[in-house]
Simulated assay, not measured.
Amino acid sequence: MAELRSDGRLGAVELADRLGISRTTASKRLAALVQSSRLHIVGVIHPHTLGFTSLAHVSIATDTQAQHVSRQLAGRREIPFVTLASGSYPVIAEVRASSEAALAAVLDSIRLMDGVLSTETLVYTDLISDVLRPVSVDDVHLDALDLRLLDELQVDGRLTYSELAQRMSVSVGTVRSRVTRMLDSGVVRIGAIDAPGPDRRVNVGLGIRVRGTVREAGAMLDAFPEVRFLAATVGRYDLLATVDCPALGDVVGVLDRVRALRPVTHLDSWVHLESVKEIYRYPIGGEMADVTR
């Protein structure tokens, strides 16, 4: 699972070599994982690449059951991420929109939802590291075929070149060269995202204030292998991060290392207790897709 989080298109032969096991064992284990509901292997595109440039983290206080509010949020196309969390804000959501006006409209609609008592919003000024760490590539040219391929890979990152070629009505060689180019250039990263459930890894949110430049502190945090998400923000915190660890005990050491960083002056943390929605799929040429787990 750890190898697939890093590269979701790894085959049985490559996994056998990396793990020092037989190809038969690797093939059986890989097939079982891919067919299970424990993880989803998808392509994640940096939102800026497709024009989604207005992003925000929203912490929500409720005056009703948090699950009720989280379900309402999960049904929104502009909201790819919803969790139930510890702390004074039991629901956390992320909004990704194509403009500041669109973002403001979504935030207004959240505040009007039944059960929402209050909200605290952090607007991203820089998405330093997204889930699976795709890279925003400003100068890459994506034509209609590239976009169609990305649309398919966002749903199933392990589609074979032959399957993609059949869906695109082009040759296998053309698909292979296009997908390879987009992977190599950082347009898309393909990896495994844990599904909700008891086997899910522990995710902890961090709110960080720093002295000096946010860029310097952000670079230090981005070097942490446990950081799966990192953004510079305007609001209560200068940086917002998500730490991914096998267990809560592992988080303690990460928090100590973050506090020890010279620029860090303040650190708050909260545990993401239950994943309600985590879908980073963007429709090609339209609004956020209405797809939830």
Rank of each mutant, 00 (worst) to 15 (best):
M288F: 04
V188M: 09
G8C: 03
P198S: 09
L221S: 02
E152G: 00
V116E: 03
S6T: 11
V34D: 08
A93R: 06
G75C: 04
A260R: 13
A241H: 03
S275D: 04
E14Q: 15
R200Q: 08
R29L: 12
I193R: 10
R38K: 13
A12W: 06
V214A: 08
M288Q: 11
D222A: 15
V187T: 07
A144S: 14
E278W: 00
V202S: 06
R189H: 12
V291H: 10
T121I: 14
V252S: 15
A93E: 04
S54P: 11
Y161T: 13
G207N: 02
V210I: 12
T24Y: 05
R293G: 14
A16R: 11
A16M: 06
T121P: 10
D151F: 05
A32G: 11
R259E: 12
E274N: 05
L15A: 06
R262M: 06
S169I: 00
A219S: 14
I284C: 01
R215K: 12
L150M: 09
I193W: 07
A85W: 00
D143Y: 03
S269C: 04
A97L: 08
L122I: 00
V155F: 10
I128E: 06
T62K: 06
V291C: 00
N203D: 12
A97Q: 12
P134Y: 00
R158C: 08
R77E: 14
V140Q: 12
G115W: 07
T160V: 07
R209K: 02
R257H: 07
D250W: 10
M288E: 11
A105T: 10
T265Y: 05
V210T: 13
Q166E: 13
T180G: 13
V179Q: 08
E152S: 07
R158T: 15
A192D: 11
A12S: 13
A26G: 07
L39H: 05
A192M: 09
Y161V: 09
R181K: 13
D138A: 15
P246V: 03
P263Q: 03
G205Y: 03
P196Q: 03
L248H: 14
L240T: 02
C245N: 10
V135S: 12
P198W: 06
D126P: 02
D256H: 15
D114L: 13
D156Q: 08
D268H: 09
D199K: 10
V42G: 00
L132Q: 02
